[in-house]
Amino acid sequence: MTIFLDILLCFGVVLAQATFSTILSAKGIYPDLCFILACVMGFHSGEYKGLRIGLTVGLFQDLFSPGGIGLNMILKGLAGALAGVTTHTFSTVTSPAILLVSFALSLGCGLASLVVAYPVVDAPILFHALSSGLLPQGLYNSLLTLGTFWVIKCIGPSLSMVHLGRGPR
């Protein structure tokens, strides 16, 4: 049942990313809802759940993405797992920690995608990507991750019993 709900959640988020992400865009910067989902799950329910959700949502994202299948799956899976590991091993789940970790993860995922997506990555392209894409998107993603995490934590107990598994340690 939990796996079914996970798949349903991932599918819904990919669908939202494909259809409604333009509504959430700020000055041409789109939030990566799949990344946010993976990270929130990692922060909230631990590294294994983050990894599982990240892999699933990444796979669905790859199916509707022009790049090769596997890139988003690996990146989102890693992001979910690392979000769980970093906050549960090296830090407590506080707002600055979530912001910092999700920003770093978003930046890492963005750089990896950039290297794979663009045929040539030279210094001007990298500078342009950093200034107009990677950094603003990282900030946006991390803010949304923080907001979503605290919303889930506030409405948490009932939701976590149904679907999200155990809460933060």
Binding site: V14, Q17, A18, T19, S21, T22, Y30, D32, Q61, F64, S65, P66, G67, N72, G110, S113, L114, V116, A117, Y118, G133, Q137
Partner: peptide, 14 residues
């Protein structure tokens, strides 16, 4: 067209 830009690193439509 039923969707756009699932990934941020490509300019694509579905």
């Amino acid at each position: 067209i039923i969707g756009r830009n699932v990934s941020n690193w490509y300019r694509a439509i579905i």
